[in-house]
């Protein structure tokens, strides 16, 4: 990869990262942290790439451990974030359910 292209991508991603979360309300701090946490679980594709190239059994074992850890980060991260966010709409949800029942 061309170093200058790489630097361009990194600098632009830094600014996008700053901007997209700059207006977060404080009630969403924890879910946003959890969601960002899930996103870096994408290291899974790195772990899969490395495991897919390993020919030595010992190194393959280490790479597969990385795959297990990264999957836990990715899958667990999105599931736990979704559960946190469910808590944010209970009143609205309950209200909607009650209205459905009265129909």
């Amino acid at each position: 990869m061309n170093p200058v292209t790489l630097l361009t991508v990194v600098v632009l991603a830094v600014f996008v990262g700053f901007e997209v979360v700059s207006k977060v309300s404080s009630t969403l701090h924890t879910p946003l942290m959890s969601g960002a946490n899930a996103i870096h679980g994408i290291i899974l594709i790195g772990a899969i790439t490395v495991a897919g190239q390993s020919l030595n059994p010992g190194l393959l074992m280490l790479a597969l451990i990385a795959v297990v850890l990264a999957t836990a980060n990715l899958v667990g991260g999105f599931v736990v974030t979704d559960r946190m966010l469910k808590m944010f709409a209970p009143r609205k949800q309950a209200g909607a359910d009650a209205r459905d029942e009265t129909k």
């Binding site: 790489l6 991508v9 990194v10 991603a13 830094v14 600014f15 996008v16 990262g17 700053f18 997209v20 979360v21 946003l32 942290m33 960002a36 946490n37 996103i39 870096h40 994408i42 290291i43 594709i45 790195g46």
Partner: peptide, 12 residues
């Protein structure tokens, strides 16, 4: 990986 990691690093 570069973009996703940088996004999380910056927003985090």
């Amino acid at each position: 990986l570069v973009v996703a990691g940088t996004l999380v690093g910056a927003s985090g």
